[in-house]
Amino acid sequence: MPFIIKKMFAPQRQKAFLFLIKELEYTQKEAQRLIAKGRLFVDGKPMTRTAGEVEGEFEFIYFEPITRGLEPTAVYDEFVLFDKPSGVLIHPQNRKTPYSLIDELKYQFGRDANIAHRIDQETSGLVLCARNKESERDIKMMFEQRDMKKKYLALVHGELKDEMCIEAPLLRREDESAIVRMVVKVHQDGKPSKTEIKPLKYFKDKDMTLVECSPHTGRQHQIRVHLFHVKHSIVGDPIYGQSQKDIVRFLDKELSDKERVKLSGATRLLLHANELEFDLYGNTYKIESRVDFAKECLLYVNSQS
């Protein structure tokens, strides 16, 4: 478990954030942020005042990263890339999350390393991570300014014969049940969104097509919604292309694997972040995933048919 309760002792009365800076080598900003989040306990009660003081024994909830041996795909002085397996979270959802990619990153590259962007838990593939605070700032800026070229692979239902450019505005749905708050839809009031789709191979026996997706904007669930919009939803998608009843059942973890396969074709979303291309500090990088996603898709679909 990455989050552990660490017993600590302050021999004399002092500001709690100063103690954390000295003992755990946090910056002042980090120490005060963690205190404000209620990570420090005195006599069993959380301290939330960033200027609070400690003396004697107290407890601190400390993030101690663990490893499961996931090796990076590429390592450079300023950044590192991992091929994230499907099912692995980027960040822990709560203090009981047993493992996430941030564990692996910080275990291997230290506390200053941080993940620069996100992909969904069920999406596999490349995740770009900064190795220091400066590169983290610069890489995140690249994503914000759309200076990052991204290519995904997806297995979709039906035969897609021609290349297409989908330009459909996307809106986070705020109506209906609060439990489907994560669902995004094409709507005229949404934000401009653009995805280029290129068919790579049609599998006639499955009536499924492997496609390459190049998003020009970075909206939440963009590729998933756009492919559903053109009636080629991604195999394994438990949200887009499903009834609201089944979406709620999936989110409530009431949908069995067998039911999910029947509804969507797979027990995981068959979407993979396959390639990143960008310029950083005078160098151009084009990095591809090491995973043979087409082969993985066929093995996955065949095993469930």
Rank of each mutant, 00 (worst) to 15 (best):
F3A: 05
I4A: 14
K6G: 04
M8K: 07
Q12W: 14
F19N: 03
L20N: 02
Y26I: 05
I35F: 02
K37V: 08
G38R: 09
G44L: 03
M47A: 15
G52W: 09
E57V: 15
Y62D: 03
I66Q: 15
F79W: 01
D83R: 01
G87P: 09
G87W: 06
V88D: 11
H91N: 02
S100I: 05
E104C: 03
G110L: 00
H117T: 03
R118I: 01
S124T: 11
N132P: 10
E136M: 02
K140P: 00
Q145E: 15
H157R: 06
E163S: 12
L170N: 02
L171T: 01
A178C: 11
I179M: 11
V180N: 07
V183S: 05
H187I: 15
G190M: 06
T195I: 07
K198H: 07
L200K: 12
R219V: 08
Q222F: 00
L227P: 03
K231G: 15
H232S: 00
H232R: 01
Q244T: 07
K245W: 12
D246F: 07
V248M: 14
L255P: 01
L263I: 15
A273Q: 00
L276R: 00
F278I: 00
Y281K: 09
I287H: 00
V301Y: 01
